[in-house]
Design a binder for these strands. Structure first.
Length: 479
RNA sequence: CGGGGUGUGGCGCAGUUGGUAGCGCGCGACGUUUGGGACGUCGAUGCCGCAGGUUCGAAUCCUGUCACUCCGACCA
């Protein structure tokens, strides 16, 4: 079936990717703009996606022993300042509360941009012995960062996320936790969101403020631009020392614990949109889609059609499928377009002719192909198509990632890639920040994404300065 | 924070030399329709982003301001 553009309200991706994104976000009813600068309203359909993301991640966290807590949303300035690299990183984008009611506050309060300092302030009180470790905490909250330019989901002044904060007895254990949680994200992105990604370590320059190591998951969007999908940090005992968090060890000496933190935000919804969407709108990965299958009754006024549609709905629902029947007065064609725009992964059409022969029609949102299946086996057929859609999305995203990943062995080649081929560039690097800065300046924004866990040896020398190379870096532009 | 653009019913837009607001879609009722965005009839919906100013009179001119958007800069 030839794919043509059916939804004229959505700007085509090739015409203007940024405008396409804005159109999809609005037309699929994910967000609305609010009267508050830089802040978005997440509408029911968008929030339902977030709830499914939460459910998936929260289950994985808890299975690994993490507990949910809630910290205050205000951080006294003195607390934020305890770790000097941390405050330097975040102070420029803090929102400050200076007045309460009629009274000027004696100390201004930051609206949390992230909560390491609050957790540490609390850890100090609850960690005394090695028997109190590890502490495996997580919280689902909003944070505020005063961004200069904002876009729905990708960068907003306020956003929702989870932030995990853990304390461990040994460095080794904390380092393991850092990598374990990045692994959780990698698994989640691939097996839930259908998004393959490059994972690795951030360079010194790109590290989180106050971290010893920052690990990252870097999916590539359809247009070749990277989006940091999640991060996991190893802090060593730097914050513990700054906050004077100590415990008595097994050897009866006073020690500092070792710390991690890790987070995924509503930005992941932006990743879904820009990884999977097409010119007809959103395509939701089945495992987080609020509606996995929409049933469109055809000629629904005819005897028995709606009854059959509802009967199928009950059966699918009982089988664990998130399903809805659209029995509104809109024409079938209108409904098709509507649910394509909203990215529902599988459509089920059922009309009088189908009912007569005991079948219904399943349509994949990815390929648009139709499959006639027996009503009696509808549960297994729908489940199979949902899996099929998931796998198709993974394959498509993998192909995009592979196609738009280039290798550069010389600086000329690097600049050529940066200018003419959107996507990632693999290239060797000497380890100096100077080269990162030079590359960023001379390409107009290409930065190191990460030092991947699996490095290729493309040459012996830095692509930029020609000095001996220490690592292969994946470079790219980012949201 | 710099540079461009836009704010007029829910959405998309028109509105000339200033004269008191219009179109399409959508929305509601009724009828006919129904396998890829149906059609007819009738109907409802506006502090023209907000605040000042000029004028007998402002959607229109001037000043300020707010928001959104695109491109940079900045930014887990």
């Amino acid at each position: 079936m030839a794919k043509e553009k059916k939804v004229e309200q959505i700007t085509s991706m090739d015409t203007d990717f940024a405008q396409w994104y804005t159109d999809v976000v609005k037309k699929a009813e994910l967000v609305d703009y609010s009267g508050v600068k830089g802040c978005m309203i997440i509408r029911p359909y968008g929030y339902a996606i977030w709830e499914n993301i939460q459910k998936e991640l929260d289950g994985r966290f808890k299975a690994l022993g993490h507990e949910n807590v809630y910290m205050p949303m205000f951080i006294p300035e003195s607390l934020l300042q305890k770790e000097k690299d941390h405050v330097k990183g975040f102070a420029p984008e803090c929102a400050w509360v200076t007045v309460g009611g009629d009274n000027q506050l004696s100390e201004r309060l930051a609206v949390r941009p992230t909560s390491e300092t609050l957790f540490c302030d609390h850890f100090k009180n609850v960690i005394h012995s090695y028997r109190d470790l590890p502490k495996l905490y997580n919280q689902w909250v909003n944070v505020v960062r005063w961004e200069k330019t904002t876009r729905p989901f990708l960068r907003t002044s306020e956003f929702l996320w989870q932030e995990g904060h853990t304390m461990h007895e040994t460095e080794e254990e904390a380092r393991e936790e850092t990598l374990r949680m990045l692994g959780v994200y990698e698994d989640f992105y691939l097996n839930v969101l259908a998004i393959p990604a490059i994972t690795g370590r951030k360079t010194e320059k790109e590290k989180f403020a106050g971290a010893i190591e920052t690990y990252t998951i870097e999916p590539m969007m359809h247009n070749g631009v990277a989006l940091q999908g999640g991060t996991s940090h190893y802090f060593g005992d730097g914050f513990a020392k700054a906050f004077d968090i100590t415990f008595t060890g097994r050897d009866n000496t006073i020690k500092y614990p070792f710390q991690t933190s890790w987070g995924v935000s509503t930005r992941s919804i932006g990743a879904i949109i820009m990884t999977h969407g097409d010119d007809n709108g959103l395509i939701l990965p089945p495992r987080v889609a609020p509606v996995q299958t929409v049933i469109i009754p055809v000629a629904q006024h005819k005897e028995g059609v709606l009854e059959k549609a509802n009967e199928i709905k009950e059966r699918l629902s009982a089988a664990g499928v998130r399903v809805k029947v659209d029995d509104s007065d809109n024409s079938a064609g209108w409904k098709y377009s509507q649910y394509e725009m909203k990215g529902v992964p599988v459509r089920l059409e059922i009309g009088p002719r189908d009912i007569e022969s005991g079948v219904c029609v399943l349509v994949s949102r990815v390929s648009g192909e139709k499959k006639t299946v027996a009503i009696e086996s509808v549960e297994s057929e729908v489940a199979a198509m949902l899996d099929y859609v998931h796998n198709e999305l993974v394959d498509r995203a993998r192909r995009n990632l592979a196609q738009k990943t280039n290798e550069a062995r010389s600086y000329e080649e690097f600049l050529d890639c940066a200018q003419n081929r959107p996507g990632f560039i693999k290239a060797m690097w000497c380890g100096d920040e100077e080269c990162e800065n030079k590359i960023k300046d001379e390409t107009g924004g290409v930065k190191s994404r990460c030092i991947p866990f699996v490095e290729d040896k493309l040459s012996d020398v830095c692509v930029c300065c020609g000095k001996p190379a220490k690592h292969m870096v994946v470079w790219g532009r980012q949201y």
